[in-house]
Every structure is written in structure tokens, then in C-alpha cells.
Simulated scan of single mutants.
Amino acid sequence: MRDHRRIGRELGYFHSAPLVGAGLPIWLPDGAAARHAVESYLHEVERRAGYRHVYSPPLARREMFERSGHLPHFAEEMFPGMADGEGELFLRPSLCPHHAQVYASRGRSYRELPLRVGELGPMHRMERSGVLGGLSRVRAVSLNDGHIFCRPDQVAGEIARELGLLRRAHRAVGIEAARYRLSLAGAGDKYVKELPWERAAQLLREGLAGAGLRADEEPGEAAFYGPKIDVQIVDPAGREQTLSTVQVDFFQPERFGLSYVDADGERRRPVMVHRSLLGSMERLMAHLLEVHDGALPAWWRRCRRWCCRSVRGRRTRRGSSRTGRSNGGYASRSGTTAPWERGSGRQRSAGCPSRR
């Protein structure tokens, strides 16, 4: 049976050191190179899709996680707080509260929406020691995350758009979705009660329909702040797990007081759409190693050279150049095919590491 822990050890991709701790893998040079190729691909795809990338710290004050709802509803999966002399700091279990602060950093107009914020950032979950294993279940997570702040009338269209982007990313790295799951609220105190749950679920259904997809509806699988679309994958052993998600959130914009000025001059509340194209780098790499039996698709060695080519020989002034608008410091290669989109996603390459 294919086991990414054995494959990763033979290839020298990652190491689990007892002195570091369970669920805290170290990426070795070859594994880091493979991961960087995927990260470069994601950054370029998101940039072309209109995302603005940010960096945010993995810590925040107690007050932020109380307001976001994580401490009241998610504390059992968070690490204990650390005293800093003025209160407590917590390792974040998700990136969304920080991205809400990106939105809140200045006033917003309806003309700016949708605002798409992306980050491949660290977060930490206090997983039980009994469920930790290799890269598939860890405590230090590197998440390909993004949040879209939009008007209510834009939500369904943004969901459909993100599902299309997500499917493109899956094809590029050689992943097939087993099914799509519409995860709804269930019974119990896990979920925030005073939310428009059915309205959020209906927006997800409209987004699925717009993308031409169907999903199995399952109560009890939603996030505490809203329903979500989970993209389920199956490993070679037949085990199912969630890789990517798209979520609708009315809760955090309300809790953080986010707003924009509408065309009529009134302040309105945006809707927050959470999404991850390829999930965490750890779970993604574990799945790729098992699906491809250690021989990753041919593009991963080439894509760094393709993604980050600087604009040469062009003078840029105030965001424009002689040949047109500058694109964030990257060369425009419209009409060309990216290395990760050439040929089959399952293609083996002589340049890829092989296990002998």
C-alpha cells in the first residue's frame, strides 16, 4: 500500500524529529523545492484571478479570537494562550480574522468590491496526538487561503468563479475530486444560532449550479460560522478527506464591523467568502506523494522559472509601461501555456525524483 510517510522518507522530502514534536514536520530541501513549485503556481494563478496577496502574523490577542467566535466555539482545537504582560496571545487556528483586519485597514467603497485577499500562511491546530500522522494530519499547517469581500448580489457569482478556479488547480496538479459536499449546520451548541443559515446555504447552491456541479448535502459538517462546500478526495487506500473548501460567512463581517459605502452613500455590510484552492501544503503533498507514488508531475521542477520572471527592458512609471499596464512586477505571458498545464497531470518525468 502506498504510504506518503514511507515515500517521503525514501525521497528525503520531510522529517519528523522527536525533539521538535509530533505533528510538526520539517520540510527537507527536496520536499521544500516541490512545495515551492506548488506555491509558485498558486500565487500566479491567484494573481491572475485578481487576488492581492498579504502577509499576516500567526499570533493575535485574545480579544480578536473572542470577537471572531473561535474562542467561544473552537477553543478545543486551539493552543493555550501565552501571557505577554498586557494580556494573552494565541496562535491562530485560521487566517480569516487577520484578513478581516486587512479589509478594515481603511474605508471601502462598493466600487472596490469584490476585494480578493490571498495568503499562503501558517496556522496551528491542537490536534490530538492519536490522529497525527506524517503530513496528512499536523499541528503546524501552511494553508493556501483566500477571502473575498463582496456585495450580497455578487456572492453566488464569486462562488461559481472560485469553483472553476479550484477545478483548474486540481487538474493542474493531477488531483480528481471524489465528490462535492454541501456541509450544513446540525444540532448542538457548535454553531452560531443567530445567523441566516438557509440564505447562506442557498447562495452556495446557486454557486454550485453556476459552476455546473452537484453536491451531497450533509447536516452537521458546517463550520461554526456558516455552511460550506467541501471538495472530497480519496487516497489510494480508499480513505476520504477534505482538501478544498468554499464557505459563506455573514458572521465575521458583523462581528468585526466591516462595511462599505454603497452607491446611495449608505453604509452596507459585505459578505465574506472563504476559499482554499488546494488546502494545506501538508495534506496536499501527502496526497500527491501517494497518488503519484512519489513521481510528481513533470511541471514542478520548471514552474518556478516560469512564475517569477521579472519584467526586463521595460521602464515602469506609476504602474504603467510603454507596452501597457504593469502587472505587479511579473512579465505578461498571455497566449502561452504554463509548465504545470502542459500534458497530463499524471505524467512522470525523468527529471522527477524516483525511488529505486
Score class of each variant (00 low, 15 high):
residue 352 C to D: 15
residue 271 V to I: 12
residue 57 P to L: 13
residue 184 L to T: 02
residue 9 R to H: 13
residue 295 A to K: 07
residue 233 I to H: 01
residue 146 G to V: 06
residue 242 T to M: 11
residue 258 L to K: 01
residue 201 A to E: 01
residue 313 G to Y: 07
residue 337 T to Y: 02
residue 355 R to K: 05
residue 230 D to W: 02
residue 211 A to W: 11
residue 145 D to N: 03
residue 16 S to I: 15
residue 284 L to K: 01
residue 200 A to M: 12
residue 104 A to S: 04
residue 128 R to M: 15
residue 204 L to E: 08
residue 282 E to T: 11
residue 149 F to R: 03
residue 80 P to M: 06
residue 106 R to T: 13
residue 101 Q to K: 10
residue 338 A to D: 00
residue 196 P to I: 07
residue 47 R to L: 01
residue 170 H to Y: 14
residue 162 E to F: 13
residue 321 S to R: 09
residue 215 A to T: 04
residue 167 R to E: 11
residue 321 S to C: 09
residue 288 L to R: 00
residue 190 K to P: 13
residue 232 Q to F: 06
residue 125 R to T: 07
residue 186 G to N: 01
residue 307 C to E: 08
residue 323 T to R: 07
residue 102 V to L: 07
residue 256 F to T: 10
residue 332 S to L: 12
residue 39 E to H: 06
residue 137 R to E: 14
residue 122 P to T: 12
residue 117 V to G: 09
residue 231 V to W: 06
residue 257 G to T: 09
residue 22 A to Y: 03
residue 319 G to V: 05
residue 70 H to A: 11
residue 332 S to K: 12
residue 193 K to A: 15
residue 158 E to D: 07
residue 231 V to C: 14
residue 142 S to V: 12
residue 34 A to Y: 02
residue 114 P to H: 06
residue 205 R to V: 03
residue 160 A to F: 02
residue 309 R to Y: 02
residue 268 R to E: 14
residue 1 M to S: 10
residue 313 G to A: 10
residue 299 W to L: 11
residue 178 A to F: 11
residue 327 N to I: 13
residue 114 P to E: 06
residue 346 R to C: 12
residue 308 C to L: 01
residue 4 H to A: 09
residue 98 H to D: 14
residue 31 G to C: 01
residue 248 V to N: 03
residue 264 D to K: 07
residue 213 L to W: 03
residue 15 H to C: 14
residue 171 R to E: 09
residue 87 G to Y: 05
residue 238 G to W: 12
residue 162 E to C: 13
residue 332 S to D: 15
residue 339 P to F: 04
residue 351 G to T: 04
residue 348 R to H: 10
residue 200 A to W: 01
residue 179 R to Q: 14
residue 50 G to Y: 12
residue 274 H to S: 04
residue 237 A to Y: 08
residue 21 G to V: 04
residue 312 R to N: 12
residue 236 P to H: 06
residue 162 E to K: 01
residue 302 R to A: 15
residue 200 A to P: 05
residue 343 G to V: 03
residue 17 A to M: 15
residue 155 V to C: 05
residue 258 L to F: 10
residue 202 Q to V: 00
residue 170 H to E: 13
residue 120 L to W: 04
residue 50 G to P: 00
residue 65 F to R: 04
residue 141 V to K: 02
residue 67 R to W: 10
